[in-house]
Amino acid sequence: SEFSSRSGYGEYVQQTLQPGMRVRMLDDYEEISAGDEGEFRQSNNGIPPVQVFWQSTGRTYWVHWHMLEILGP
């Protein structure tokens, strides 16, 4: 990996993601499973900070930056 740390990767995702971009989950996290795909909606200063609309659940759920792989527009 070109990223030395999880936080470095998270910063990359945070700087790159734009609303509407497709993402894939890298880790299991509460209701969301690794491999689930969705659409980035928004972020804020909460914890976790990233709101994604997940195809698997049909609704939005908040996750962490480093848990997401960017699939593209």
Rank of each mutant, 00 (worst) to 15 (best):
G35N: 01
E37T: 12
T57F: 01
G35I: 04
P19F: 10
E2Y: 15
Q55G: 08
M25V: 01
W54R: 02
Q15E: 04
H66Q: 07
L17I: 11
T60N: 15
T16S: 11
Y12R: 04
S4Y: 09
G35K: 03
I70A: 02
G35F: 01
Y61G: 13
M67P: 01
Y61V: 14
L26R: 10
L71I: 14
P73N: 08
Q51C: 11
V13F: 02
D28Q: 06
V23C: 01
S56F: 10
G35D: 00
V13G: 04
W62L: 11
G8I: 11
R24F: 03
H66F: 06
G10D: 06
V52L: 00
F53E: 08
F3M: 09
D28T: 14
P49R: 00
P49L: 08
L68H: 03
E2V: 12
P73A: 11
E69W: 13
Q42V: 05
D28L: 08
Y9C: 09
M25L: 11
P48W: 02
M67S: 13
Q14T: 12
I32N: 06
F3I: 09
G46Q: 14
G38L: 06
M21W: 07
S56M: 05
A34Y: 03
P19S: 10
G20M: 10
G38D: 05
I70R: 04
M67C: 05
E39K: 00
E69L: 04
Y9W: 05
R22S: 05
R41V: 14
S43K: 07
M21G: 03
D27T: 10
F40Q: 04
Q51R: 01
S1F: 12
S7P: 11
Y29F: 10
L71G: 01
D36C: 08
R22V: 10
S56R: 14
E11W: 11
G35C: 02
R24A: 02
V50L: 02
L68T: 05
D36A: 08
D28I: 05
F3G: 08
N45H: 13
R22P: 02
A34E: 06
P19I: 07
V13A: 02
I47L: 13
T60G: 05
R59D: 13
Q55Y: 14
T16M: 13
N44P: 01
P48T: 12
P19N: 01
G46K: 13
R59E: 05
Y29N: 03
M21F: 15
D28E: 05
E69M: 04
M25K: 04
E37K: 00
Q15L: 08
I32W: 01
W54I: 13
Q18G: 07
D36R: 02
D36H: 01
D28F: 05
E31F: 09
R41G: 06
M25W: 06
S7H: 09
Y29I: 07
R6M: 13
M67N: 09
G46I: 05
E37W: 02
E31P: 01
E11T: 10
G8P: 13
A34D: 00
W65D: 01
T60L: 14
Q55T: 13
M21S: 04
E11D: 07
Y9S: 03
E39L: 10
M67K: 04
V50D: 05
L71A: 04
Q51M: 05
Q14I: 09
N44S: 15
Y12V: 03
Q15T: 11
F40Y: 07
T16H: 13
Q15V: 01
L71C: 02
L68D: 08
G72Q: 06
P19Q: 09
S4A: 12
L17H: 00
L17Y: 03
E69K: 10
S1T: 10
